[in-house]
Structure formats: structure tokens, C-alpha cells
Design a binder for these strands. Sequence first.
DNA 1: TGCGAAAGCTAACGGCGTTAGCTAAGGTGC
DNA 2: GCACCTTAGCTAACGCCGTTAGCTTTCGCA
Lengths: 172, 172
Amino acid sequence: MSRSDEIVEVAQALLDEAGPAGLSMRAIATAVGIRAPSLYRHFPDKAAIEAALQERALLDLADTLAAAGPNLVPLAAAYRDWALAHPHRYALISGQALHRDRLPAGVEDAAAAPLRDAVHGDEDRARALWGLAHGLVELELAGRFPPGADIAAAWRAGMTAFGEHRRQGFRA
Amino acid sequence: MSRSDEIVEVAQALLDEAGPAGLSMRAIATAVGIRAPSLYRHFPDKAAIEAALQERALLDLADTLAAAGPNLVPLAAAYRDWALAHPHRYALISGQALHRDRLPAGVEDAAAAPLRDAVHGDEDRARALWGLAHGLVELELAGRFPPGADIAAAWRAGMTAFGEHRRQGFRA
DNA sequence: TGCGAAAGCTAACGGCGTTAGCTAAGGTGC
DNA sequence: GCACCTTAGCTAACGCCGTTAGCTTTCGCA
């Protein structure tokens, strides 16, 4: 394993346990066993390390979604489960945090493809579905739902809306 | 206008033009005409200033949504329009950024109430709808949709799903 | 007139990402 | 075998960040 790979590995462990706020260059370097400036021998800046983590996370998410199959309900469940299992990774790939220009082409799309397939290529409904899943995950991770809220039921309500809609062959 | 109010006013202007990243204590202080440590005469810490901005933003959003009326489509349009008009304010009240423990009681709920009313008190569907709106806004603000994407059509697709669903009296 | 509170100030601390510039180790060409 | 260049580490430091300590000035009021 190259030193670069080792750094990314260590950074991912640090992200998982300490969150994005704990992912400092000094912390990564210490975990590797070197000093912060030495990291710049392997990566041009912190964003490059973050981009490597984002690539990993997106590919992992894409695999997970692909493994969930083509049906809406298990697909949505896989999306939510992945986010809840890796909340800090999800935070790293959501919002403005994504270093899109540093990611290899296709990586971002790979994670979106399963959702698009689940609505049979209808781009508008795929985007709405993505928004729904992303929004529900973000609200849940941010603790915006009151304690005791039945979040699974909210997912069911959303999925039912989209599922029924599809079964009727509706077009917006 | 008290000094505290002036600070919040200036901070909001700074937020609107420079975004959350530009909202530093030194920048706020300079814009007010004082030095950063003097801000601590009026607020205990930066989070308190942010909380004041969040309260303003949430109340403004709540007013905007209330003015949009009880129907789903114009309500959703108002939500999106507000977020696009004040992207940095939206960023400040979304995600983990919210200082919930520092906000006056009811402020957060005031912004959510119109969505809940629009689905006639069905909590599960209200949360799904909130997730949909929040998610679509976040994805759009983050530039996650490809250039030229018909985002309005995605909103229509989502709203149609929820709207049709309601008209049929469906329950999840 | 004196006093205390309010509100400003400078200097500084420990954190951050990052840069400049030095050094030690390892391989390669003559 | 020696000179040389590259690689990968290091320390010191810069300018930013939020924040604290401690000083001064001003002002209202008894």
C-alpha cells in the first residue's frame, strides 16, 4: 500500500470517528505518524484528501444501492441505511462539500444511477426521488425531527407517493 | 436601534454577500466599526450571533410560506423561491448548522407549520414533503443537477406525486 | 465629586491550512 | 567510489480563525 493510500485510509478512520470537524491536516498527520507539512509531499492540499474520501464514499454508496435491486422501497431503505451507518461520510458527500472538479468522471453519476433506474429513466421523477431521499436523510442526521418521530413512516409515505404514482403511469 | 441589533443587521448583510465562510468575528466587527473582541460585550460567542441570524431567517421563511396559502404547489414554489433568493441564509438554517438550543421555542416549528397544514396534519406525509423540498433545494444550491436540468419539472414531478396521492385519500 | 457599569481597546493563546527552506536517505550515472 | 538528484521527512513561520485577559475611557447617577 502506497503512502498516499495509507493517508487516505487513516483519514477515513479519523473521519468516521471524529467527523469532518476532526479531520484536520495535523490530526491526519499525527495518525499516520508524521507532521502535517509532510502530507503535502503526497497531496497538493486538504481538498485533495477530501476528494479521495468522497470518491471512496460515492463508490461505496453506489455499490450498496446497486446491490439493493431495482425496486423503490428496498432501494430507499438501502440509501437511508447507508447514510445512518456512515453519517460523517454522508456529510462529506452532501451539500457544497463535494469537490466535483477533483472527482474522476462518472463517480458522482454512479451513485445516482440506481435511483434513475428505479423510476425507469424518468429524469424529473428521479431527481424528485433523489431530493426526497437526500432531504429525509439530512433532516434525520441533523436531528430535525422531534424525538420519537416515526421516520420510517415518513419514508413509507414518500415512497408510497412515488410508487403509486408510477404504477398509475402518471406523467408530470 | 441597539448595538446588538446593529451587529445582527451588519452580520446579515455580510452573510448575504460573503456566505457563511465570510462571516468571521473580525469581519463582522470591522463592518460595525469596532474590533472583534468588543463583539463579546454584546454576544457571548459567535454561535449566539448565528442563532440570531437563524431566528430571523426562520421567521422570514415562515412568513413567506404562510403568505403562499394552503395549496401545495404555490407553497412549494414559495419554499424554493425563498431559498434561491437567500441561499446563504438557507445554508445557515439547514443541516447541523442550526443552534436549536439557542433558538426561542416555536421558531423552528413556525417554519414547518405551513407544510404540515398543506397535507392536513398528516405528520408522515408532512415530513416526507419537507424532506422533498429541503432535498431539492439543497441539491440545487449545491449545483448537483447538471447544467440545463429542468429543476422546475423535478419539483412538479414531486408535487404531483404528493398531490395526486392526497386527492385519492391514500394512507401509507 | 466620586463610583461603578458599559463598551471600547491591545496583546495574546491555541487552533487551522499552508509555505519556505533545510536535511537525511536512496538510487543512478560516470 | 564519488557526485548528483529525487524523495520524504523535518522545523519555523505566516495569516487566518474564535476567544480570553486585562486595561482604559466614557458616562450616568448618587
